[in-house]
């Protein structure tokens, strides 16, 4: 028996239940109307240099830490009392350009920070957000934890798998989508919460899935 209490209609793809804030635009709610565009070099060292972009086009052979990335790396280094402190943000940079962390990328980071490659690998494998394998242009993470689950998250997960014709963790043949289950995304009041690259899609019901995938295909580069 389904435990779903899906929202009926009104979900433009990214959020259905906006309560008394229907008048706000997507850009207002996401904050993009405020932070605007960012430079690859990351602007101020304290603020935006440390967080990765989720670039649509990922090139597993792209050079690491060159051009604006070299600048960004230097800014990151300046924020920690030792080089090891910069490890997580530096791994983020590597993943940003290449889409995942290959053993070679990790070795490169190790060398740059004066750490043992085995140490870097030990740290990287601890964290789920470092992709050890290449993923699709859109990494779709469906929260199936309890607050979403009791409102029908398993059905949403199934719907994503069905409409992409994949198994969890598999990438579609066109390279567009990889769907995985996620733990709580910290958006429990907006079930089901789904993270797609940088963005959260909220109040997603199984029947919203085709429209979301359609929207993403429109954004896709291939």
């Amino acid at each position: 028996m389904s435990e779903a209490t899906p929202l009926q209609g009104g979900n433009p793809g990214w959020a259905g239940e906006r309560g008394e804030f229907e008048h706000l635009s997507e850009a207002d709610i996401r904050g993009t109307s405020y932070y605007g565009s960012r430079s690859l070099a990351g602007e101020n060292a304290g603020g935006v240099c440390a967080y990765p972009y989720q670039l649509l086009r990922k090139n597993p052979d792209a050079p690491l830490f060159e051009g604006p990335y070299a600048e960004r790396f230097q800014k990151i280094l300046s924020r920690y009392p030792d080089k090891q402190g910069a490890l997580l943000p530096t791994l983020n940079l590597a993943q940003e350009v290449r889409g995942h962390l290959s053993p070679e990328s990790m070795e490169h980071v190790a060398e740059l920070l004066g750490l043992m490659p085995t140490y870097v690998r030990g740290v990287a494998t601890f964290y789920t957000m470092y992709n050890k394998q290449p993923v699709g242009d859109f990494l779709i993470q469906v929260c199936t934890n309890v607050a979403c689950n009791m409102c029908g998250a398993d059905e949403v997960m199934e719907s994503f798998l069905e409409h992409t014709s994949t198994e969890a963790g598999e990438t579609t043949a066109d390279g567009n989508f990889t769907v995985i289950e996620a733990e709580c995304l910290g958006a429990c009041g907006f079930p089901t919460a789904v993270q797609i690259n940088e963005r959260y899609f909220e109040n997603v019901a199984p029947e919203d899935v085709p429209a979301i995938l359609q929207q993403l295909r429109g954004e896709a580069t291939r």
Binding site: R30, G31, R38, V48, Q141, L185, Q195, R199, Y200
Partner: peptide
């Protein structure tokens, strides 16, 4: 790490 959107707001 999942909070890209809030992180960008805070970063700015």
């Amino acid at each position: 790490g999942e909070f890209f959107e809030p992180a960008q707001v805070i970063g700015r």
